[in-house]
Amino acid sequence: MNLVFHNPDSVAAPLGRYTHAVEVPAGQRMVFLSGQVPVALDGTVADTLAGQADQVYANITAILASLGALPSSIVKLTTFLTEEDDGTDCVRQARAKYLGEHRPASTAVFVSRLVDPSWKIEIDAVALLP
């Protein structure tokens, strides 16, 4: 997969683990992942933002793996959060754990709540398929 990452000098450098624009080569197949929520396979939901962020990224990577794709195939992420990080940077840590140095285009938004009030995070993704 030959994603092309663009961070032009005409705008400020990215403020986090993302890229301003990601170019998808012609002819590539894409998959759009629905918003992944912090529900484990057994139906449990962690109490902390750290645990929930880890579960959401685990869900995303599991879906990609089921399609034969790696986390490095992610083109775009949109993250919805209901609370600020507790100072431990746990959402960024979960992202780094599952995505490593891969820096897709990204958007993060604080919202008042998600569908289930116990959820603190939801992330949707766009990725390329091999």
Score class of each variant (00 low, 15 high):
Y18W: 14
V91Y: 00
A127H: 00
V45L: 08
S106Q: 15
Q55N: 01
I123H: 01
A65R: 05
A21N: 08
V111H: 09
A65L: 08
Q36Y: 00
W119L: 09
H102N: 05
D89P: 04
L70M: 11
A65C: 03
R95I: 06
L99C: 06
S72V: 12
D86W: 14
T19K: 08
S118I: 12
F110S: 11
I123Q: 04
I123S: 01
E84I: 11
E23I: 15
S10E: 10
E83P: 02
T88G: 08
R113T: 14
V56G: 01
A96L: 10
R92M: 08
P38M: 07
P14I: 12
Q55D: 05
T48E: 13
I63G: 00
Q28I: 07
V37D: 00
V56N: 02
G87R: 05
V115Q: 14
F32R: 14
R29V: 06
R113K: 11
L33T: 01
D9K: 13
Q36S: 06
R103N: 13
P8N: 01
L129Q: 10
D124T: 06
T48W: 09
P8C: 01
L3T: 05
H102M: 12
S10Q: 08
N2I: 15
Y57H: 10
F110H: 13
L64D: 02
V91H: 00
S118L: 12
D47N: 14
G35M: 12
A125S: 03
P71F: 02
A46V: 13
R95C: 06
N7K: 04
L129D: 09
Y98F: 15
F5L: 15
P104E: 02
L67H: 14
G51V: 11
T19I: 09
V4C: 06
A125H: 04
A13K: 15
E101M: 09
H20S: 10
F32P: 00
D85P: 04
L81E: 01
V45A: 11
D42Y: 05
D42K: 11
A26Q: 09
T48G: 10
P8S: 07
N7F: 04
N7L: 11
V56Y: 00
A96P: 01
P25S: 09
A94Y: 02
L77G: 03
F32M: 13
L114E: 06
L114M: 13
V11G: 04
P14C: 07
T78C: 03
V22Q: 04
P8I: 04
D86I: 14
Y98T: 12
P104A: 12
P14M: 08
S66V: 08
G35D: 05
A108V: 14
V11A: 11
L81F: 02
P130A: 12
S112P: 03
L114Q: 04
S106E: 15
A53H: 02
F32W: 15
A50H: 05
L49A: 09
G100T: 13
